[in-house]
Structures are given as structure tokens and as C-alpha cells.
């Protein structure tokens, strides 16, 4: 395999990225999108390890540090999975560079946490064949959550929290009215592309809450899937793997890291195999 470390311009941002190409002509590109935590390697340790494994399957890949993180220029004081426009533009720019340079069109994605939101934003591209989302945060902070954050550090917030009567008469009705946590529009929107792409949501079984997975998230996923035609339901998979949390891949012991890689790689290769079989199949 060959690695190409690059700087890619994305609007006013510029990001450090690594494009990895197999020795042979690649049959597709996999965009590897990290979360926002600690990453020892450019893109993340998971992305670096995946890039090597995918090259062994004839797939190129591209990974990046979002602007303001790692080795990419810029300063970002806060990361919010509901605000991904800039990161999506950066990911798109890196993907375009890789696809153009390597002369390949189809792409798949592997995103972790924040990166899974970015991945879901790009599945609308007709060249996308699928995405594996590790620990995707399905729910957004609702109106009450935003309000809570604003008043949390104020005395009025502390007073309301400390008073059982106010919690019952003010907070509970507000929660019902505003919806504390709602499925993100990105998540809902991605499901509309299941007529074409394949989606896999993976969560770690050890501490699911750290992977943003709980009863409400599961309910949201299941109800969204239930509304889909059967053919599209088959293109989605929700899976829990042992160990985790997946959001902290860098910190997991080698055995667990290997298990996660072993779980992800077959999905990604199958996306391209399936897409290739559709192209090869005679039209009916």
C-alpha cells in the first residue's frame, strides 16, 4: 500500500489528511471519519488501522483531522454533533481529492460518533454505496436541553433543580412540550437513501451510554426502521458488539480493537461487492 499525507483546502479551512491506496487499482474509496476525542494518528487510530486493512481488500481510503483538531490548522472551541456543516465540507473536499487523484467513483464511509453524523450527511451522494456508523448519536439535544444548558450555570437553574415541586410542575410539562431529545434530522434523512445505500449502526455493549445508545435511541431507530419498506429494512443493520465503548477505540486493548476491525471491514467490502454486482447484473 502507499500512503499520501496531504493538506486539503475546504472553503476557508484547510485540513491535514492521509490518502491510502492499495498497490493495485482501487475499486473504491472509503472515507474514514473520526470522533472528536483523543487520536494518536492523523484521522484517528481506528482510521489508520482501517486504512491498512482496507488496502488489503483493494480499497483506497482517506482520513483527516477536522480543522482545529490534531494537525489541521484552525481553532475550534466547541464541538456539537448537531453542527457539522464545516466538518462535512472538509470531509467532502478530502473525499473529492482522493477520488479525483485515484480515478474512482464509488465510495463508502466509516464514521465514529461525531464522524458518523458527517458520514450520514454524505450518503445522499449517488456514488455512496454504504456507511458503517460506530456509536452514532441518534438523538439531538431538544429544546429543553438547549434551555437547560443556558440556565444551568445560573442561580435560577439551580433553584429549579433543587425544588421537587418546580421540577414536577415546570420542568416535566416543558419536557413533554419541547421534547427533551429528538432523533436528529441527519439520522432521519439518511434513512431516505436506503433505497440505494446500506447502513450499519454499531454500538459497544460494555457501556452503551458512552456510545450514546439507550432505550430512547433504540426506540427511535426501531420506529424509523419499522416505517421503511421491507426491501429497505434489509439494507439497515443495528448491531451491538462486545466490549467498547467504540467512541474510545484508541484506549481499548488490542483484542477488542481487532474485534471491532473484524466487524467493520466485512461490511465495507460487502458494500462494494454488492454495488459491483448490481452493475454487473443484466437489466431486467
Amino acid at each position: 500500500m502507499r500512503e499520501f499525507p496531504v493538506f486539503v483546502q475546504a472553503g476557508t479551512d484547510r485540513v491535514a489528511a492521509v490518502v491510502t491506496a492499495p498497490d493495485e487499482e482501487p475499486r473504491g474509496v472509503v472515507l474514514l471519519l473520526a470522533g472528536t476525542g483523543r487520536h494518536n494518528a492523523i484521522g484517528s487510530t481506528l482510521s489508520a488501522r482501517l486504512s491498512e486493512r482496507l488496502a488489503g481488500h483493494g480499497l483506497a481510503s482517506a482520513r483527516l483531522d477536522y480543522a482545529g483538531s490534531g494537525d489541521s490548522p484552525g481553532l475550534v472551541s466547541q464541538w456539537n454533533p448537531a453542527e457539522i456543516a464545516a466538518a462535512t465540507a472538509q470531509a467532502r473536499a478530502v473525499l473529492d481529492v482522493a477520488r479525483h487523484a485515484l480515478g474512482v467513483r464509488p465510495f463508502a464511509e466509516v464514521g465514529t460518533c461525531y464522524g458518523s453524523r458527517v458520514a450520514l450527511a454524505l450518503v445522499e451522494d449517488p456514488a455512496c454505496v454504504g456507511a458503517v456508523c460506530l456509536a452514532p448519536p441518534v438523538l439531538d439535544v431538544g429544546g429543553l436541553g438547549r434551555m437547560s444548558r443556558r440556565v444551568r450555570d445560573r442561580r435560577v437553574g439551580a433553584f429549579i433543580r433543587s425544588n421537587a415541586l418546580l421540577r414536577r410542575t415546570v420542568v416535566a410539562p416543558l419536557r413533554r412540550a419541547l421534547g427533551a431529545r429528538k432523533p436528529s434530522s441527519r439520522f432521519v434523512g439518511a434513512f431516505t437513501h436506503l433505497d440505494r445505500v446500506r447502513l450499519v449502526f454499531l454500538y459497544g455493549g460494555r457501556s452503551a451510554h458512552e456510545d450514546h445508545f439507550g432505550a430512547r435511541a433504540q426506540q427511535s431507530i426501531e420506529s424509523a426502521v419499522a416505517r421503511l419498506p421491507e426491501e429497505q429494512r434489509e439494507r439497515f443493520e443495528l448491531r451491538t458488539v462486545a466490549g467498547g465503548p467504540l467512541t474510545t477505540f484508541d484506549g481499548l486493548p488490542p483484542g477488542e480493537q481487532a474485534e471491532i476491525l473484524d466487524a467493520v471491514v466485512p461490511y465495507v467490502t460487502s458494500f462494494f461487492d454488492h454495488a459491483a454486482s448490481l452493475v454487473a447484473a443484466p437489466a431486467r
Binding site: R2, F4, P5, V6, F7, V8, Q9, R14, A16, V19, A21, E25, P73, V97, H100, A101, L102, G103
Partner: peptide, 25 residues
């Protein structure tokens, strides 16, 4: 693949004229 290598190799470096610096792999 020589052309793909050339395209990507050209992106090893950027220049920030405002800050007066470059970075390069």
C-alpha cells in the same frame, strides 16, 4: 498511477501567506 501520485504529492505542502508560514509533509 503515476498521475495519482503526482496529484497527491503536490498536496503535501500548503502556504499560508497571511501567517507567513508553510507546512509540508
Amino acid at each position: 498511477m503515476a498521475s495519482s501520485s503526482d496529484t497527491l504529492t503536490a498536496l503535501r505542502r500548503y502556504e499560508d501567506t497571511e501567517a507567513g508560514l508553510f507546512e509540508e509533509f
